[in-house]
């Protein structure tokens, strides 16, 4: 029980944020209207993705110094889980954009950069598949992972700040800035973020344990 408390917490938080996200009152903003509820589902995906990719880089760094197989498996499985959240973030965003901006993909800077960041991790998986030898694969892909991470940070956090985006809160669009993200929304938004991050971590730890068991059977 003492080890599964955070899993229970994750389930409770995600259920709470889903139910409350649809039922709780939200502020009326022009253009956004009821679609503002997508904040509770779309944004937490990116937070979960960033956390998982950070875990991946952390274990890549550790793998370079220890060379332990488990560190490599941790790095690749957290990247695997992270990319699922990245794709979910793109999909929830595109669905929302389809109703709010009129098109599922309107080549908004944030959409493009997020897609490229996802591509970066697909390249990482292609690189892994290109190498057969295990130790070598772990080392080279860890190096690419660490090399690519700062570029992803630039893509996701620096470049979008320099351009106008259709996203709420950018370029004069009404958004979830500090003054309109009122306390009612915060009460759902923060638990949603925490809940999805925990779910992401759970998915990653399950995948990691499964891979370790599989590897044991092979050896």
């Amino acid at each position: 029980m003492y080890r599964s408390w955070w899993k229970i917490l994750a389930v409770i938080l995600v259920i709470y944020s889903t139910v409350a996200g649809f039922l709780m009152p939200v502020p009326r903003l022009a253009i956004l209207n009821e679609t503002i509820r997508n904040l509770y589902f779309h944004v937490p995906m990116w937070f979960a993705m960033i956390v998982l990719f950070s875990i991946s880089v952390w274990y890549s760094v550790r793998f370079l110094s220890t060379g332990a197989e488990s560190d490599d498996v941790r790095a690749v499985e957290s990247a695997n889980a992270g990319i699922v959240f990245g794709l979910l973030g793109l999909i929830t965003g595109a669905l929302w954009a389809g109703y709010t901006w009129g098109e599922f993909w309107s080549f908004d800077p944030k959409q493009n950069f997020a897609a490229i960041a996802v591509l970066l991790y697909f390249a990482y998986f292609v690189l892994r598949n290109a190498i057969d030898e295990e130790q070598k694969r772990g080392k080279i892909s860890a190096i690419y992972n660490i090399f690519a991470f700062p570029m992803m940070v630039v893509l996701l956090f620096v470049l979008p700040r320099l351009q106008d985006s259709l996203h709420p809160g950018n370029g004069g669009n009404p958004g979830f800035n500090s003054y309109d993200l009122d306390s009612r929304m915060r009460a759902v938004f923060y638990p949603a973020c925490l809940g999805w991050i925990l779910v992401g971590y759970w998915v990653y730890s399950l995948r990691f344990r499964l891979r370790i068991l599989e590897n044991k059977n092979i050896h």
């Binding site: 490229i116 390249a123 292609v126 070598k136 190096i143 690419y144 630039v154 470049l159």
Partner: peptide, 26 residues
């Protein structure tokens, strides 16, 4: 740097393009 990574991975040209494009886009 990317070519150093690609050369270690074995099959050069193809991997070089895949690895470098997402990094160079920003």
């Amino acid at each position: 740097m990317v070519s150093a990574i690609a050369s270690k991975a074995g099959n050069g040209g193809m991997l070089m393009a895949i690895l470098s494009f997402p990094v160079i886009v920003p």
